[in-house]
């Protein structure tokens, strides 16, 4: 059994302008020790999906449906005190902006100790000891003295390490990282990604890596969900996804990415803007921007169906398989050019 099983999850926000369908029928599984990459652009529903899983969306304005089973236990119907026991203890979370994600008026040590003492009946001294140890584990120099510093005395990269230390301090089984490196410089990003890999090896936690960066997904993930307009539009093992993406949106994402190894002089661009979640298009959410759209796409939402030869590679698209294969072959050649032979 998977550690985290999400079935047909819906999150809708009631706003003054109408109902925003932020998440519409998302399903996935996460196994122990694995890394799930979740890619999508702003408004794809990737963050809201996991805030819903954690019970962190405001239920006063959000309607939530579906099922979230964590280790066999249904979380969507769990009491708030039950959820508090799971959050921070069994599922840790890391957020995007380390500058704003730590309380500016409390010492780093206090914030780490709080995480310890919320879930363990230990003395302040013991909590402090664990806080220092956690800081050492994320390679913060002079952890014994830095523990008494305030967040503004740390650089962005160091604050993100503190966030990671805090998420890991109770040795959770799952870490949900929401764009953990987006606000950081590339050399710092490389440090943080390497650290996360190392910690995963040491502790065996499962990681959900939510990001807009296909590069980060390629580096870290075992499995990938591509999200668009509140739905999963493609899911696959990471190698399959990059070797043979099946959905025009994924093609577009890969094509629009300038990359070091690329030879093409012009990027493939996806025309138009991400869809409105207030008034999503009928049929396939991607149809207004899709180059291969036909009538069926505008009328009917394609199911998330498996590829003919791979049961674990699933995607939403009405194109028939031969057609899809032909288009991808052409795209791949254009994308990789002379280096196509190496890939």
């Amino acid at each position: 059994m998977a550690l985290l099983e999400v079935q047909d999850l819906h999150t809708r926000f009631r706003t003054d302008d109408g109902v925003v369908k932020a998440v519409s029928g998302v399903s996935f599984e996460l196994d122990r020790g694995k890394t799930l990459g979740v890619v999508g652009e702003s408004g794809s529903g990737k963050s809201v999906t996991f805030l819903t899983v954690m019970g962190l969306v405001d239920r006063k304005i959000a309607e939530v449906e579906g099922s979230v089973r964590y280790d066999g236990e249904e979380l969507l119907r769990a009491s708030s005190s039950r959820l508090q026991k799971i959050r921070g203890r069994r599922i840790g979370m890391i957020f995007q902006d380390p500058m704003t994600s730590l309380n500016p008026v409390k010492k780093i040590g206090w914030q780490l100790e709080e995480a310890v003492r919320l879930h363990n009946d230990v003395s302040r001294d013991e909590a402090r000891r664990r806080a220092i140890q956690a800081l050492q584990e994320v390679e913060i120099p002079r952890a014994e003295t830095r523990v008494d510093d305030y967040p503004h005395q740390f650089s962005g990269g160091m604050r993100q390490r503190v966030m990671i230390a805090m998420a890991l301090i109770n040795q959770p089984e799952v870490i949900i990282a929401d764009e953990p490196t987006t606000a950081l410089d590339v050399t710092t990003q490389a440090q943080i990604l390497r650290l996360m890999k190392k910690l995963q090896d040491d502790h065996g936690a499962a990681i959900v890596m939510i990001t807009h960066d296909l590069g980060v997904v390629a580096e870290l993930a075992d499995d990938v969900l591509v999200m668009y307009g509140g739905r999963v539009v493609e899911e696959a093992k990471v190698d399959d996804l990059f070797a043979a993406p099946q959905m025009p949106y994924t093609w577009g994402l890969l094509g629009s990415l300038p990359r070091l190894e690329q030879v093409a002089t012009r990027l493939e661009q996806i025309p138009g803007q991400p869809p409105s979640l207030l008034h999503p298009p009928r049929g396939c959410a991607f149809n207004p921007r899709c180059a291969y759209v036909f009538d069926k796409c505008r009328a009917e939402l394609p199911g998330l169906d498996p590829a003919p030869d791979k049961a674990d590679h699933r995607y939403r698209c009405h194109l028939d398989d031969a057609e899809r294969e032909r288009i991808w072959a052409a795209k791949k050649a254009a994308l990789t050019g002379v280096e196509g032979s190496a890939a």
Binding site: M54, L56, S101, N103, L118, M163
Partner: peptide, 8 residues
């Protein structure tokens, strides 16, 4: 949000 995610 961080505090809530900690389980407070």
């Amino acid at each position: 949000r961080t505090a809530r995610a900690k389980g407070a």
